[in-house]
């Protein structure tokens, strides 16, 4: 176990959506390797507050790697240097004494910066609202065991369903494409029987909304998969393309 570290931070500061941002340099001294990355920022913020300076705004909530609220581009990588790890689960032992750390918000036209390191990811919500559900009301559904699903199919759907909606895939992509995020949800429903009745209209509606939000196209570089903190696979994108083109081929009902 190494000792405490002194670090230099270059942090993106931006007052709001309208103003231009810039990098500001801060010292982070006496940082324990046992701190999480966000706890290190907490310490910096406490210091700034004591000096009467505006603390750095960043999104975070559960700090368990599951809510998907934390983000941060750290030294050029979404969620920092450690694979399959969210920023909140990244610990300072992944850095070394004297290191300079550059911290930026997600960079994508569809994710405008609202302050400092926080961006507006409501585009993701709108894509889900376009069709990421089964059209059923509460009550009046069959018994749970009346819908048997082979274990391997259920497990595969689960793997797709574990996406935390953080937006790292978009931030990692040179085109700012949201294909990994969208395809994970489309896949989850395409795999299981509950999703079959609206399978094609769902794919069309969600893709249409994705395009409307201004995300870029997929050019198969695979950066999204490499940077995804929960290991969502590229095969989802292949499945989504299949769903989308099949939908066009069969000219299913218009997307609603």
């Amino acid at each position: 176990m190494s000792g405490h570290m002194n670090l230099t931070l270059k942090v993106w500061r931006q007052k709001n959506k309208e103003t231009r941002g810039k990098f500001v340099t801060y010292k982070a001294d006496d940082i324990s390797p046992d701190m999480s990355f966000l706890e290190m920022l907490d310490v910096v913020n406490e210091g700034l507050t004591r000096k009467g300076e505006d603390p750095i705004y960043f999104d975070h909530d559960c700090r368990e790697g599951i809510c998907g609220m934390c983000s941060l581009h750290i030294n050029g990588r979404p969620h920092g240097p450690k694979e399959e790890t969210t920023t909140c689960q990244l610990h300072m032992r992944s850095f070394h004494d004297g290191q300079t750390i550059v911290i930026e918000p997600w960079r994508a036209a569809a994710f405008p910066v609202i302050k400092d390191l926080a961006v507006d990811r409501s585009a993701f919500d709108r894509i889900q609202q376009a069709g990421a559900y089964v059209n059923i009301n509460t009550g009046g559904v069959p018994d749970a065991n009346a819908i048997p699903i082979p274990k391997d199919v259920a497990d595969e759907a689960f793997e797709s369903a574990t996406c935390i909606g953080c937006g790292a895939c978009v931030a990692a992509c040179k085109n700012a494409s949201a294909m990994l995020f969208v395809s994970a949800k489309i896949s989850q429903y395409a795999l299981v029987p509950q999703g079959q009745t609206e399978r094609y209209s769902r794919a069309q509606a969600m893709v249409a909304q994705m395009d409307e939000e201004g995300f870029g196209s997929c050019t198969n570089t695979g950066a999204c998969e490499a940077e995804c903190p929960v290991g969502i696979k590229l095969t989802n994108i292949a499945r989504m393309n299949r769903e989308y083109f099949t939908a066009k081929f069969f000219k299913q009902e218009e997307a609603h």
């Binding site: 749970a144 048997p148 274990k151 259920a154």
Partner: peptide
Amino acid sequence: DQCVAQGVPFAREYGGL
């Protein structure tokens, strides 16, 4: 019942239940 109908991927046994 409700959650399964929504497509929540609960753990299953090999028989699919």
